[in-house]
Design a protein around this nucleic acid. Structure first.
Lengths: 299, 299
DNA sequence: GTTATTTTCGAATGATATTTCTATTTTTTG
DNA sequence: CAAAAAATAGAAATATCATTCGAAAATAAC
């Protein structure tokens, strides 16, 4: 784990000379550039252009077959499993132009995270010329990742139950603050456009508590809340709970104070990029809820 | 990464005594057994039986939402991302009966090793029997399509110019109604959180016209508008235009009345599914704008 | 409002992991 | 077959990491 930040690949006059003299052990001197991603590494390995001696070949094969072990393990563990010395792994990494194993291992870790190289380390990104564009792409990635995750362990039963509750309600109260507010805004608008009567509890004029004070047991609450759960939303939902309304919730973890107040809740985890969080998944799920309610009422 | 192999859980006479004396902070003494797998841990966390103080709750939420970061990172990296001290992570692990973070981290690593190789292929979506689920998938598809289209013919120059205008403004007015309102809400919130002063023109109390009446030539307007363009937004932007403010716009066609009023505008086309329209692309682009403005102002 | 308890923070410490270096073995070349 | 070059293993050194501990802050109880 000791990633050093020493500058490595400046071919000084001396190193060039040395390289020439000893017929260069490093690929860099052969015109190769060090792979920046796991895929690039794989491509190089499979190209067959490089011929390794026994132990290094052993390493290459192991990396190829057990990438996750490399990502998760320490150098000692990996070396052990591959049947070589730790130093052999370091040599291998250095042949590809990395400062050492830690540096090399980041390829495998990044691959597993499936996300961008987490702007840790001091390496600049030469591929993306424009910083703003890079952020845009990152944001798009975060949105798509959030959307993609909806499928994993999606609780269909809860989803259906939520639709039932909302469809059966006399009046739907839509509650959410801060980051959740854009979501509730859109849900409320869409509900209204579809002819489903609803109240958006927006706390304009600080009247939210009075509004929820009108809730009856025949009503339902659609609450949206994300961590950190320090907004007014839990308080409002608590009131609704006391007044015996049905409560359905979209939130991002079981630790949401709303989870225990709700009749049914659905977990939707949004990804962020550089601290800016996506809302795509919550909006999609919310829209689907609205659609389901409309379908059930009219069908 | 320092996984110790010290035998841990032999409850010596002394440790039992100690535990009893200080009313035991660990769950083990409460009859819990330490979770052996990631799923068990998740179950315990979600059971809601454990009540954590602030920082520990923060940890729990982070673990819940970013398991892969925990598996791949060092304690310092994880702590940093979760916004707590490294020692807090150790405490957390110890509450569950582990000797320390390394031990605890093995849960996450094991779970990653198991889940990666198998379930990553292209699994087909088994013809959705459920109508509601079908709609959800359609909605997700619409969002992803919208996001995917951003790349095609994206006008980088306009994008940059918009950032310039907004960054140079004394005060930013954010305007958008109906479907665009969720977008402007989120943009305004994020701007404020980043320390960029802005006014969200929400027309509460029908004061929008009066608000834009205060615009000066040193201000900028960030307008968002989609077809049909029958909202109040064009009127408001027209006023801003008369008052000589810089106007930048996100809209969905050249026919938008805002196009001709704007100094710069960007086309973002959202796809819809069954009449329910995505906002994902607009949000992503909007976030990127905000990020750019912040970067330019602070950089 | 005060006291007692729990929780958090941050620096010091102890342990582990990674890298470097050198002697030795293996391979290649003349 | 001998000599030179390259590759390897293993141990020592160094950087990094995880953990502990005491003081300070926050919280809860009285």
């Amino acid at each position: 784990m000791s990633g050093r930040n020493n500058a490595v690949d400046e071919p000084s006059a001396h190193s060039l000379e040395t390289a020439a003299r000893k017929r260069s052990r490093s690929l860099a001197a052969l015109g190769y550039t060090k792979p920046q991603t796991y895929e690039e590494l794989r491509a190089v390995l499979s190209s067959g252009t490089v011929h390794f001696p026994k132990r290094l070949r052993q390493v290459a094969i192991f990396l190829w077959q057990h990438p996750s072990e490399v990502a998760l393990g320490t150098i000692a563990q990996v070396a052990d499993q591959a049947g070589v010395q730790p130093s052999t792994l370091v040599r291998f990494a250095q042949i590809f132009g990395y400062s050492g194993f830690s540096d090399f291992q980041l390829l495998f870790k990044d691959r597993m995270k499936g996300s961008w190289p987490e702007t840790q380390g001091s390496q600049e990104r030469p591929a993306e010329p424009n910083a703003n564009l890079h952020f845009l792409n990152g944001m798009i990635g975060a949105c798509q990742a959030s959307l993609g995750r909806i499928g994993n362990g999606f609780d269909i039963d809860s989803f259906e139950t939520m639709i039932d509750h909302l469809a059966a309600a006399e009046l739907i109260y839509v509650i959410g603050s801060k980051r959740a507010f854009p979501v509730t805004t859109y849900l409320s608008l869409t509900l209204s456009q579809q002819g489903v009567r609803n109240v958006l509890v927006d706390n304009v004029g600080s009247t939210a508590l009075d509004q929820v004070g009108c809730i009856t047991p025949r009503d339902a609450v659609l609450a949206v809340s994300f961590s950190p759960y320090n907004s007014i939303t839990p308080d409002l939902v608590a009131v609704a709970h006391e007044r015996k309304a049905r409560i359905v919730t979209i939130t991002d973890s079981t630790f949401s104070p709303l989870a225990k107040l709700s009749d049914t809740w659905l977990e939707v985890v949004e990804q962020d990029f550089g601290g800016f969080r996506s809302l795509a998944a919550s909006l999609a799920v919310g829209m689907a809820l609205v659609h389901g309610v409309v379908a059930q009422r009219t069908g």
